[in-house]
Design a protein around this nucleic acid. Structure first.
Length: 261
DNA sequence: ATGACGGTGTGGCACCGA
């Protein structure tokens, strides 16, 4: 059982890469962020032809999330209930798996621009609301995965320049405390359950040869609830798609869960 | 360094991302 998160930075542009990637890496669930298209433009036929069901929540130009799955998703929730939000950032759904029902919450977390900005305040309020939502979801769904583009580098080792970027966006104490608060709900960062190469990142700036110089951040995460933790066999970042022509600035991250025999 | 690169929508650029 494999579940992937991938910020594609425009599904219209990246659809061929997503389909190519799925052909070689047929994961069970693929969660996408930054679709940048309205729902009427979602390439449902192409996704279905590739053998996937899809639920999606998009808007024109910005944001947008989707959940592709081998089996149909149900009990779909768009955004955080109770939070007034113009932006399409969350899609949650239940999928069946060999492990039983699995609740998946796919988020495109707020960027936040810079500490002190209005967008940063929105990020903090959004994170606060998300925390309450995830807590409620966990009470209903013991087997839960929270994944997506968190726009938070949780620790110094998740940044190419932790000293130079200290207390800048993605690196602030406040953002990191929010990440820890999510862990405190009983979630576990699947990537850090394993020994990983130093300087493992999931995003690299398009500018200044960021990828070639490995100037990146680890901001795409897959958190799993306690009942799932013993089943996690691997979590890895696939850098290959970042080497494509016209790549997304993010790489896909995949968690592998053991299936009962 | 208020830059860079890339996507979108619009329009001869501005805005946004991270």
């Amino acid at each position: 059982m494999r579940i992937t998160t991938w910020n594609v930075n425009s599904l219209a542009v990246r659809l061929p890469q997503v389909l190519d990637w799925l052909a070689t890496t047929p994961v069970d669930v693929l969660c996408l962020q930054e679709l940048k298209l309205s729902d009427d433009k979602f390439p449902l036929a192409e996704v279905q032809a590739a053998g996937y069901h899809a639920v999606f929540f998009g808007q024109k130009t910005y944001n947008g999330v989707a959940l592709l799955s081998r089996t149909p998703a149900r009990d779909v929730v768009h955004n955080i209930p109770g939070l007034a939000d113009e932006q399409a950032r969350v899609i949650a759904a239940t999928v069946d798996s060999p492990l039983g029902e699995l609740r998946v919450i796919n988020g495109y977390f707020v960027n936040g621009q810079a500490p002190g900005s209005e967008k940063f305040a929105y990020k903090m309020a959004w994170l606060e609301a998300l925390q309450a939502f995830v807590r409620a979801e966990m009470a209903q769904h013991p087997r839960l995965v929270l994944l997506g583009d968190f726009n938070i580098a949780p620790e110094d080792r998740d940044s190419y320049d932790p000293e130079g970027l200290r207390e800048t966006i993605h690196h602030t104490t406040e953002e990191r405390q929010h990440f820890q608060a999510l862990l405190a709900l009983g979630l576990h960062d699947s990537f850090r359950m394993f020994e990983q190469p130093e300087k493992s990142f999931s995003w690299w700036d398009y500018r200044e040869f960021g990828f070639r110089r490995n100037r990146g951040l680890r901001i795409d995460h897959i958190l799993v609830s306690a009942p799932l933790k013993p089943l996690v066999q691997a979590c890895a970042i696939d850098r290959l798609p970042r080497k494509n022509e016209r790549p997304s600035d993010h790489a896909p991250v995949t968690v592998t869960l053991a299936s009962p025999i």
